[in-house]
Amino acid sequence: MANNLLAFYVIIGVVAYVVLCFMAKKPAPPHRNLLITIYFCCLAGMVIAGLPVHWHIEFPWQEPIPAAFYAIFGFAACVFLIYFAKGLRLWLPKDYDYYEKKRKGRE
């Protein structure tokens, strides 16, 4: 139970961080604020819903925080994904006529 509570605080922390990120920006229109509130309530609801669930623990890394493992994993996975993709952007993108130019340049 203590672990679950710990997880809960972690999630609250993440959410609070995001809200702070928002507040640094200029204020949004009111209906948008409502949508955002509902969205964050959903996020918190997901974690709270995880607390009473009987989890099947399959791997050791799930043990410390079973209730919020998937939440943290999902967040971290997407952040990793985007940073990695940003890294790839350094050398993967070329102009649309890249191959055309390569071909024409030799002819």
Partner: peptide
């Protein structure tokens, strides 16, 4: 719950970024 958590927090990451 696990799938919903995974997806919702993935969307959070998209949103934050």
């Amino acid at each position: 719950v696990s799938q919903a958590q995974l997806l919702m927090f993935a969307s959070l990451a998209f949103y934050v970024l």
